[in-house]
Design a protein around this nucleic acid. Structure first.
Lengths: 207, 207
DNA sequence: CCACGTTTTCGACCGATAGGCGAAAACCTG
DNA sequence: CAGGTTTTCGCCTATCGGTCGAAAACGTGG
């Protein structure tokens, strides 16, 4: 989500939302406050620090140090945005101001990584979804096609996916009705990455 | 590596090295400069941003926003440090100033994660090492015992480990001489995390 | 100099996981 | 009802990591 700068420097270029840090807030509170001017913050499903961008020349004039964030909104949310603000596909960004394109690249890379080895998917998905819809989300975020079979199996084995019982009617071209799933309640927080070298034989205990 | 504060606030408590950001440097240049006062920066094998700590109350008095870094030094390096500075085991830190204990916890957690799913091990290891020594390094950094057999196999399969041909003589208690290894040249940079949902069948191409 | 303990190394087996494929299920349209 | 479409599911295979135990290669003490 970018907004078009009206004034110099970099007038008419697209810019990430943000602003100065208030005296009595931390950076996460600040970015949520800044974002509230553009979109309802209650719609944010995930916010995490990305990195500090501090090149002295990243903006003209006096030094500005930026703490960049990755913020996610579920796919079923289509927030109303001000007239100077619009959504853009991350693979086809317009001319951006300052180093905001680099920031977007970092965010995209972070998102792709975390989608692979955490359960962050719940932050992108609507409350209920079909496997096909989830596959589209993952493919778009990762930048390559993922197999629906595999996606369902991997997420199911991790205990993240549970069927709602409902189905959706097929489109006009036919096809089998798709089953609806949701992310398992209690799994709506970020898990640690799946360790490769695990502690010895602390096998998960049965019920 | 901590240094003992001489002055209030938090006099006599142990503190992470650091300092103010200069006008014409970015944060990484700054932390390397600050660190140079404590230890030869050429000994640093890895430096990466950790997170921004910005709680308005994290230090008394005027607001201080800190960009925390994770910095690694190979295990065979034992840098000479100033008299007010000393190394401490991360599992048994002394009383620390401000939020520096939380920063250390974050750094430890980040190190453990990255050791598992990247090739960051090269930043901790000396140029040549035995599997046992590497196992000790990984165990200490991760906080739990890892299997020497597994460690060697995992790293070998990733193509990170190559034998030097040399061996070390066994200690006074005997035992088979241990073979020496090094990290494969060209693998001394951080790889991306190993994706769980990979792009479809881009099988690694043969020679 | 030989039996024994110690440390390292290596092979074998097993379970879990992920990728790939194709058949079957369940729907639409004409 | 035939043919096309989309989803779902089961099977097979490759790889990876955990575990175990045997073998290798050393030192020491009797």
């Amino acid at each position: 989500m970018l907004w078009e700068r009206a004034r110099e420097p970099h007038a008419h270029r697209w810019s990430l939302p943000g602003g100065g840090l208030g005296e009595y807030e931390d950076v996460e509170t600040s970015i949520r406050r800044q974002l509230a001017e553009k979109v309802d913050v209650r719609q944010l499903s995930h916010v995490e620090q990305l990195a500090v961008f501090s090149n002295p020349a990243r903006v003209p004039g006096p030094r500005v140090v930026a703490t960049a964030f990755l913020g996610l909104v579920p796919s079923h949310i289509d927030p109303v945005v001000p007239s100077d603000t619009a959504w853009h596909p991350v693979d086809a960004l317009p001319a951006t101001a300052f180093d905001h394109q680099a920031i977007c690249r970092r965010a995209r890379s972070r998102l792709a990584s975390k989608l692979s080895y955490t359960n962050l998917g719940f932050a992108l998905a609507p409350p209920e979804f079909t496997i096909s819809a989830l596959r589209s989300l993952y493919s778009a975020a990762l930048g390559y096609k993922v197999s629906a079979t595999n996606l369902q199996r991997v997420l199911s084995r991790r205990g993240l996916l549970e069927p709602t019982g409902g189905t959706v009617q097929p489109g006009p071209s036919g096809g089998r009705p798709a089953a609806l799933f949701r992310f398992a309640s209690g799994e709506m927080r970020i898990t640690d990455p799946f360790a490769v070298l695990r502690p010895p034989s602390t096998r998960s205990l049965g019920p």
